[in-house]
Simulated scan of single mutants.
Amino acid sequence: MLDVHRLRVFRSVVASGSVQAAAANLGYTPSAVSQHLTALQRETGLTLLARAGRGLRPTAAGHALAAEADRVLARVGAAESLIADLRTGRTGALSVAYFASVGAAWMPLVVRRILTELPGVRLDLQLREHIPDSREERADVQVVVADTGFDPGSGFTAQHIVDDPYVAVLPAGHPLAGHDEVDLAELAEERWVDNDFARGWCRAKLLEACTAAGFSPAFRVEAHDYRTALAFVAAGIGLTVLPALGAAHLPEGVTVVRAVRPMPIRSIHVVVHDAVEHTPAVRTTVAALHEAADGARHVR
């Protein structure tokens, strides 16, 4: 088994360029650093460093181990930080991932509640549109869009938060602007502004509904995000159709009409890492997400 302390010494030598410089940076003697390097190379059975003038340079094997050591030491650092938090009675760290429209509409309320009720918690907020394949890269809590009943993966549990229906956002002077709702088919010949550069699940759900209504929208302008698309609508360039949550903060000069027959709907879920689901920080976060979703539902 590799010695973590020797990995730290090795990374210092790679970063510093020589045994002497690493010794000075670490507060060790050059002899102690050399002993750690010798022991690490004996453990691995690899030549990790080679002479380069008065200093050292990593071999190909040394470069590979240095890159992996960075990941290992980062995880060790996170564990040491958690232990320090637990010893001092702090709540600990919590990572929360979310997609863009949730970030604008819900996360300020969620974060305020977490920090009000648990002022000692350290929050790591991550903007993510998809669930990472690697378990190590996944957040403690992630808000996602997915079909009801989807499998969040081993070691994780999903809870349904809310169904988010789509709305048509029209320029204020549009003939349909005063309506409560509009059939998707009535928008078939309109100038459409796209709002999903990622071409993800949300856009696919919209296109599926349009196909069911008998047309494919002709996007005249392709925007990268909801905010930009809404600005184009406000400028009178066309209309856009997006989830209601994405229309939570509207610019002047636009109006919202429910899109129906069929009504596209996306399902929003929260995915929680089972290892931390019992902690106060996670429970507070999940409760705050439900509260934010309920507030948005009442506003609609």
Rank of each mutant, 00 (worst) to 15 (best):
H5P: 05
H5C: 07
R6E: 01
R6W: 00
L7G: 02
V9W: 01
F10G: 00
F10D: 01
F10K: 02
V13Q: 04
V14E: 01
S16Y: 00
V19P: 00
A22Y: 02
N25D: 14
N25Q: 15
T29C: 00
S31Q: 12
V33L: 01
A39I: 04
A39W: 12
L40V: 00
E43D: 12
T44D: 00
G45C: 08
L46A: 09
L46R: 07
L48R: 03
L48S: 04
L48C: 08
L49A: 03
L49N: 06
A50N: 08
A50M: 02
R51Y: 06
G53D: 06
A61W: 09
A64G: 10
A66E: 08
A66M: 09
A67T: 14
A67I: 14
E68Y: 05
R71H: 14
R71K: 14
R71G: 13
L73A: 02
V76Y: 08
A79R: 15
E80K: 14
D85F: 11
R87E: 13
G89L: 14
R90L: 15
T91R: 09
A93G: 15
V96A: 06
V96Y: 04
A97T: 07
A97R: 05
Y98F: 13
A100R: 14
V102M: 11
G103I: 11
G103F: 11
A105Q: 01
W106N: 08
W106L: 11
W106D: 08
W106F: 15
M107G: 05
R112Q: 15
R112D: 15
L115E: 14
L115Q: 12
L118Q: 04
L118R: 05
G120A: 10
G120F: 04
V121F: 04
L123G: 03
D124C: 14
L125K: 04
Q126M: 12
Q126S: 12
R128H: 04
R128S: 08
D133S: 04
A139S: 03
A139H: 02
Q142A: 09
V144Y: 03
V144E: 02
T148C: 10
G153T: 06
S154Q: 03
S154M: 07
S154W: 02
F156V: 09
A158V: 06
I161Y: 03
V162P: 08
V162Y: 00
V167H: 00
A168Y: 04
V169Y: 04
L170Y: 06
P171T: 11
G173Q: 12
G173A: 14
L176G: 09
A177G: 08
G178C: 01
G178D: 09
D180A: 13
E181Y: 10
V182H: 05
E186Q: 14
L187E: 08
E189N: 14
E190G: 13
R191P: 03
V193H: 00
A198W: 07
W201M: 10
R203T: 09
L206I: 01
E208H: 02
A209Q: 08
C210Y: 00
P217F: 01
F219K: 02
F219W: 03
E222N: 11
R227S: 12
L230G: 01
A235F: 12
G238R: 07
G246C: 09
H249W: 11
G253H: 04
V254H: 03
V254M: 02
V256N: 10
V257I: 08
V260H: 06
R261Q: 15
S267E: 10
H269V: 03
H273G: 03
T279D: 01
V282P: 05
R283W: 12
T284K: 07
V286Q: 12
V286P: 10
A288D: 10
L289V: 10
A296L: 15
